[in-house]
Design a protein around this nucleic acid. Structure first.
Lengths: 113, 113
DNA sequence: TTGTAATATTCCCATATGGGCATATCTTCG
DNA sequence: CGAAGATATGCCCATATGGGAATATTACAA
């Protein structure tokens, strides 16, 4: 088997930097393909291909507006990533560090008393 | 060019489900390769390969203990993912919804008054 | 209808994947 | 030393990637 398809899930879709940039650009408002291509300084077919992936995993939706396609962010699909990664927050968060230190102090007291 | 290497960054490394499972298993404590293979019900070479990727992106570290290699989680590398995805939290978070509603109400007042 | 703008798709290429399997490496034990 | 355990690596395969370039598709304008 090869690597899982980019369209498998949000994790795979978002592993590609250009697609992340696209999603970020779509945060504010809908954008057309050419608009995105211009902002990213990337060829139109390339953007279209990335958008297809994002569409297939449901991270964006399209709306026809004349000869344009307006792409809109639908970021709900990112929640699983946020949830999973969030499970590791204690490993870099300051406040978690403090909580940890506190708990350990408590544990020492318990053990020692 | 082909798809970016899995060892390019945490985004790519973590796109593979088995590697996520490994990281999750390592949350509690260090584990040997065979221990991981057993827990995941996966062949040892497979685990070793995934561990190599995780090592190369710095998400785990290794320690030699006799003939075993004990792998330890180093989740700090996940923070960039958490940060990036966190930028989209408003799109699924209830509390953000409420905040949004509140802001919009305010804006209507401002605009109307 | 013809032409042009906006997108999508197709074909080609180089690359590296994840898996299976065999094997090399290194460590410890007898 | 030789055998066995624990890991890492190498090779082979099928697959799909992301990019470029060309072209198909669709919508609108003249």
């Amino acid at each position: 088997m090869a690597r899982a398809a980019t369209t498998t899930d949000a994790f795979n879709a978002v592993a590609e930097p250009q697609r992340r940039r696209i999603l970020t650009l779509l945060k504010g408002r809908e954008r057309s393909v050419n608009e995105l291509a211009g902002a990213l300084r990337v060829s139109q077919p390339r953007v279209s291909k990335h958008l297809r992936v994002l569409r297939e995993v449901g991270l964006v939706s399209v709306r026809e507006a004349g000869q344009q396609r307006l792409y809109k962010l639908d970021a709900r699909g990112l929640k699983p990533i946020h949830d999973w990664v969030g499970g590791f927050e204690e490993f870099w968060s300051q406040s978690f560090d403090r909580l940890n230190a506190y708990v350990k102090r408590l544990q020492r007291k318990e053990g020692g008393g």
